[in-house]
Design a protein around this nucleic acid. Structure first.
Lengths: 247, 247
DNA sequence: CCAAAAGTGTTATCGATACACCCATGT
DNA sequence: ACATGGGTGTATCGATAACACTTTTGG
């Protein structure tokens, strides 16, 4: 193998796995990919992601690309894993689409995965330029065939989030509206972690999270006893996870 | 900015942060880098790492490169973070060295960081081909100026390991000889986590780790009461971290 | 008055912490 | 016999888990 052959440089991209919660289901943001093959147009789904610029940091690229593809701004994205299987772009359909859209000759792509948790109310610019972004129930992901290895990337992102929520349950507040009920929070928690929390124990546990405040307000327009509202004040939240210190 | 300019593709490398424990100090494996500037040769330290091959997975590349640079085999490396600041290779000394050794024109390099914990007794092929690998106390890292952003990468790796050890203390057995004393294990634990564990509480905690076995054997040739030896049987270790399940 | 969901307290268990003295060995 | 580190148990505290009935509201 020649040196040049061996050290051929791949492209680098980022892919963003953005989770949201609509009150019932945990959802992930996907964009539509239009594929023209022969004389047929059809479409497909993928994670928002793209090739990074030459002089751009990874975090910056992730923020920029998410914005370009969905319109979302000020999203806190965090890196969770990089994916570099040389076969991840080997599907001819994926390869053709890439070369058409990037106008680059694509050998392989190493992608850096980012996750974010956002309130689903954030306005997504649908039909922005050439792309359409929509929320999909994570339960249906298994039955969908996403572009590239995006099924795998989304799966890993979910694992990452589960791990994080287990250690730092306050992570979940990013997914809820400013004011929320304890039941909404518990549902979300149980959906993310696939658990069934006890109502009373859950309440006790959450009330000791610093920054979670009970409001003197209840939810309106419910056809039953109105539940109390809570909110999370980030500024009052101290560093958690530091509960135990050894001697 | 032209499209081509904007989407210029970087090189991808891996860097391996390998930790070892000599019974007293936590150490990291660094290789020597020889720099020729003008008519002067001098040297420097860096993490073992290099550019990946064209058709190689990231994990495979990490294993291969660590082996090529240190002689180490069968090391379990796990990815912890990727680094992509465009300035990470901008130091002219780093850039020159890269272009000389890789014979490639280097624009920028995105690197994927890997960590491993190994028994320090593993034979490292010193002076293998052009490189020299040696263990350095992590305490001295702060005073050393490593190549590229390797100080930062090593720092992040250490954080990663701390986090992992906190959640899964059995991680530490990778760093100890097959047979070890409880005091050695406790010292290691306290060095990694910067804690001061209580002797009795630590013993209790560790004895409930599945797979840790007390042997009917004591350490020889010590000028005081001989301490008992323990070993860790990986096969008997169940999945930990699953202690609590909610209703 | 019925349906639907909200709200609330006690007990048992477990894991984590704090803490001090005697034991075995080599010199 | 002494110096050095090894080995051991108990009491307290806080977090978690199990568990069921009453309250509020709209229709």
């Amino acid at each position: 193998m020649s040196n040049e052959m061996m050290k051929y440089n791949p492209h680098v991209s980022v892919d963003c796995v953005v989770f949201g919660f609509d009150g019932e289901k945990l959802k992930v943001l996907l964009i539509e990919r239009i594929i023209s093959e022969n004389n047929d147009n059809f479409s497909d789904k993928k994670l928002p992601g793209s090739i990074i610029y030459e002089d751009e940091d990874l975090d910056t690229a992730a923020t920029r690309i998410l914005n370009e593809l969905t319109g979302l701004k000020n999203i806190f994205l965090s890196q969770f894993h990089s994916f570099g299987d040389p076969k991840r772009t080997s599907n001819p359909r994926d390869k053709n689409w890439l070369e058409k859209t990037t106008q680059l000759e694509i050998g392989r792509i190493v992608t850096v995965g980012y996750v974010a948790l956002i309130k689903i109310s954030r306005k997504i610019i649908f039909e922005s330029e050439n792309t359409t972004a929509r929320w999909y129930d994570i339960k249906t992901l298994k039955t969908m065939k996403l572009a590239f290895d995006h099924n795998q990337i989304a799966e890993e992102a979910l694992k990452h989030i589960r791990h994080k929520v287990m250690l730092e349950p306050y992570t979940l507040f990013e997914l809820l509206p400013q004011k929320f009920t304890m039941t909404q929070l518990r549902n979300l928690y149980d959906i993310v972690l696939e658990t069934k929390s006890d109502v009373r124990n859950f309440q006790k546990k959450m009330l000791q999270v610093e920054g979670l405040e009970q409001l003197n307000e209840v939810q309106k327009d419910v056809p039953y006893r109105a539940p109390r509202l809570y909110r999370f004040d980030k500024k009052k939240a101290k560093n958690t996870l530091n509960k135990s210190r050894k001697k």
